[in-house]
Design a protein around this nucleic acid. Structure first.
Lengths: 248, 248
DNA sequence: GGTCATCCTTGACCCAGATCAAGCGCGAAC
DNA sequence: GTTCGCGCTTGATCTGGGTCAAGGATGACC
């Protein structure tokens, strides 16, 4: 979950979340200059693959705008999404030169990248960068573990409700809205992508969304535009009374 | 997965993995002394709860010997194991004062703990501690994501085979045996704990283990003593041709 | 030895969600 | 306008794994 220090502020951050998230809070001028010198931007179109699992990966970076997914695929084609990358999320791993997952842009997307080797070198010299990354990684680990409960123990209906709750909350956070009252957002994922996230088939996703709509838990305009009249009700359906965060 | 720098060496490490894993490789004498001063040991009996989710947590630490589990529980009692802590694994999170999961010792266990506040202070001053923890956390994140594939997309048989493969490999690593040829080990988990890990019921676990035994994929002596005659065969059953690591 | 508790196995039956299949809605290309 | 393709919905049927239930094995304790 995004915490409140992480609000994306393009004016303060030159469009580059990592600078804000990993560095800005306590940075020195010369660190910023050094980061600046190894930084570059990349754009991707919706549907484009950012990296294939197993590929050489000579950068780390973070999402500036747009959304992409992290997926794993078995030889027979079964796929499982293992992460959803929204603006300000970090991609890549210092100390590893091969990607472990497929990263696919699902909307047009801009990433802010740093060449990996110099970034690693800088991290070794600068305690708070590693500390910041550690904090972000621990958030992601919590999100992954939260998701293990969803995958392992929740029913199809609860899974859908959980996913909608997460997307709604993240969307509200990005827009810096309160998460009370009616929430309105566009689903960034196809039914198939949702199925891959939830360990379901797309038919089951479709049926459960229809059921939640029929029962007034959500409102649907078209296929993607969602209104949540009552977040508490949705969380109840998710089997999730806590409003604990997920999806770091 | 344990990497080769992480072999547990009690002679070199005074029985304390964190010293080795997080610090020793590049430590300074005064750092070691400082760590020493905030360090203490705790022992737990099999079945004892180390921490309840939500409890105050004023330490971080690592497992010296024995095994424990990390579990999440829903209000209605459904539980999902989200991690398995073996010797050298890290517990707790710098910067958070409440536990997010139940930690339960499933064998007698010894932990090496550090008081959290001084540990955090030390981390801020010492780049390579945060860097080491980051590396460990990233390994755990990979393991969690690997497990998301297991939970979301594998059949009961594949789940069991995946779990046996992980335990076998970790066991062999701890014993510093090669992972080729026949592997012999004792299952540390009850059928119920396996079910909680795999998102299954204990009956299904039992049936699938019986099936794997019947078909010669594994050999069973009693309920817990397992022999794996052919690791390749087991990995095939796990739907997992890669020998990629999991369970950091 | 007997009793008890815990952990495990196996069988019978059932149901949530997968699979197979048909068709709808809508935007893009022509 | 028509056609195509993609994303989605809905129906019918099947099945893997859940649920309920009845014991079996092992070990601790008296």
């Amino acid at each position: 979950m995004l915490n409140d220090t992480l609000k994306f502020d393009p004016h303060n951050c030159d469009g580059c979340p990592i600078r804000h998230r990993a560095v800005c809070a306590r940075c020195e001028t010369d660190e910023l200059e050094e980061l600046e010198s190894i930084k570059y931007y990349r754009s991707f179109e919706a549907g484009q693959t950012v990296i294939w699992s197993g590929d050489q990966m000579d950068f780390v970076g973070s999402v500036v705008s747009g959304i992409s997914t992290l997926t794993q695929t078995m030889e027979d084609g079964r796929t499982q999404m293992v992460g959803l990358l929204l603006p300000s999320d970090f991609v890549g791993r210092p100390g590893r030169d091969r990607a472990a997952y497929d990263v696919v842009a699902i909307t047009d997307m801009v990433m802010c990248c740093f060449r990996r080797k110099p970034f690693e070198a800088m991290m070794s010299k600068t305690p708070h960068i590693a500390e910041r990354l550690l904090e972000m990684t621990l958030d992601e680990l919590d999100a992954a573990r939260e998701w293990m409960l969803v995958l392992g123990r929740k029913t199809a209906r609860e899974k859908i409700a959980s996913l909608l709750a997460i997307i709604a909350r993240r969307d509200a956070t990005l827009k810096m809205q309160a998460t009370q009252g009616r929430l309105v957002f566009d689903l960034p994922l196809t039914r198939e992508a949702m199925a891959d996230y939830l360990g379901l088939t797309l038919e089951t996703v479709s049926r459960q969304i229809s059921a939640l709509k029929r029962e007034g838990v959500i409102e649907l305009e078209g296929k993607r535009h969602v209104t949540i009249p009552d977040m508490g009700r949705l969380l109840e359906e998710a089997g999730d009374d806590s409003d604990g965060g997920m999806l770091a």
